[in-house]
Design a protein around this nucleic acid. Structure first.
Lengths: 252, 252
DNA sequence: CGTGTTTTGTGAATTATTCACATCTTCGTC
DNA sequence: GACGAAGATGTGAATAATTCACAAAACACG
């Protein structure tokens, strides 16, 4: 496969859904016809499917996280991508890690290196994504009732399942944060799971885009003191980042 | 949603990928424009995506089972569909059932009624499929290591997980059968799981298309005496069906 | 260099899609 | 059962996208 085709593939993998004109603008060194032929080439190899006026990433579980929830998820796509890229740099080979549910975590999953990793997750879509796109990581899915809204499992016996797993680094996502309430989410079950994960992991890395700062959701699952590292995007206000650092959190 | 739109949706769900001209031929009572509008309607509701000259089923986990593995899975698609339809008729409301991994099981999942059911499965793609497309069933995913080949989980503690679950009816798939060897599969882990399921379920329904009869795979997980019902397609030879019936198995 | 092969670009021909509008249904109301 | 409103469907022209054939350019190799 040519370099340009690889680049087109990567571009579409990130965007999920692109138009031909978008691609011709992005890859303006080549003609529309060439890009068209590349799309045909990539479609034949099942990397993507061509749509009416462009192409879309080959749907595995991608659509479950981004497409399905639609606009809300796509809105802060760039911020989340930035976070995912930064977080992926923190992943070490040969470790046991936990990956949370959610679209930011899905993007992180796509950025993970194809190396020897043990990845535990409660998000089956993320697990499938990893297993289909990478050869080396081992994926462990937590069992339990599959929640419709979050596409993640939660079970009464999560604690039992975690007992036999030693998680080194946990990548956890939050839906809200304020100084007073800490990190919060919308679901009770998620809250319980995240707490258990945080309690058992050696190192906790929190992923959260700046749009979620200063919002409160019903269930608090962690305080600043519970986390080691905080990964956010460049739009996060310096004041908050400074406050986090003052509390001993490594902010990236 | 209109009846025609439902029918178009079903048609595309079965075919996976259709052209507009195929649809206008199939639904010749209506004009191309109407079909076009229906596709737009269905796309908005995220049931499918429109491609260059037609439409394709909305990729959730469908592609994981059918598209991804490609031709092999598509080959006996009609046989499997027949089995799935017959098996769906055996599903009762308000029961706890187990659904195996595999493309036949995926098709059964799509045929399930949108009613109150507790569905346990080791196939996360099937679980996601159900949860995204139906409102009423509760899905329980078994935890464990996610296998790349089968997209199913298997864990050391499956037995523990099953202890708290009372499964009434188990729909189990096999990859091979001969009188001498019984029902067999290719993976050791699958074998263990299927055995555990069969041991704990009140009623076992085996799903297998006729192309798999008279083939042997490495691991036997069940004998004729272990199953209650055998669902196969119309191409299965009468002699085998008669032999099964003679052994006390209900053949459909 | 020269030749054959592959890749890329161009524009015309073909095909698909959209749009505006006309017609036909359906349904509630008097 | 007549009427009007709202929605669904069909038609054809306008627009846009895609394909195709072929020419030009880039590349490989002796």
């Amino acid at each position: 496969m040519k370099e340009r085709q690889e680049a087109i593939k990567r571009y579409i993998e990130r965007k999920g859904d692109v138009t031909l004109s978008e691609l011709t603008k992005e890859f303006s060194d080549w003609s529309e016809m060439t890009i068209r032929r590349d799309l045909e080439f990539l479609e034949q190899r099942r990397f993507l499917i061509r749509t009416k006026r462009g192409a879309r990433i080959m749907p595995t579980s991608y659509e479950v996280s981004v497409g399905m929830y639609g606009e809300r998820e796509k809105r802060n796509c760039d911020l989340k991508q930035e976070i995912a890229t930064k977080a992926a740099a923190l992943v070490e080979t040969d470790i046991s890690m936990y990956l949370d549910a959610g679209s930011t975590a899905m993007m992180l999953a796509r950025e993970l290196p194809d190396r020897n990793l043990i990845i535990t997750t409660s998000a089956p879509n993320i697990g499938i994504e990893i297993v289909l796109k990478k050869k080396n990581p081992t994926v462990i899915l937590l069992g339990g009732t599959l929640q419709r809204k979050t596409i993640s499992t939660c079970g009464l016996n999560v604690l039992d399942q975690l007992k036999t797993l030693n998680i080194d680094t946990a990548f956890v996502c939050a839906s809200g944060y304020t100084d007073a309430t800490g990190f919060s989410v919308g679901g009770q079950h998620e809250c319980v799971l995240k707490r258990a994960i945080i309690a058992s992991a050696r190192r906790v890395i929190m992923l959260m885009d700046s749009s979620k700062l200063n919002s409160i959701l019903p269930f608090t699952f962690a305080r600043l003191s519970d986390i080691d590292t905080f990964v956010t995007d460049s739009k996060a206000p310096e004041s908050i980042k400074a406050a986090f650092r003052a509390a001993g959190v490594h902010v990236i």
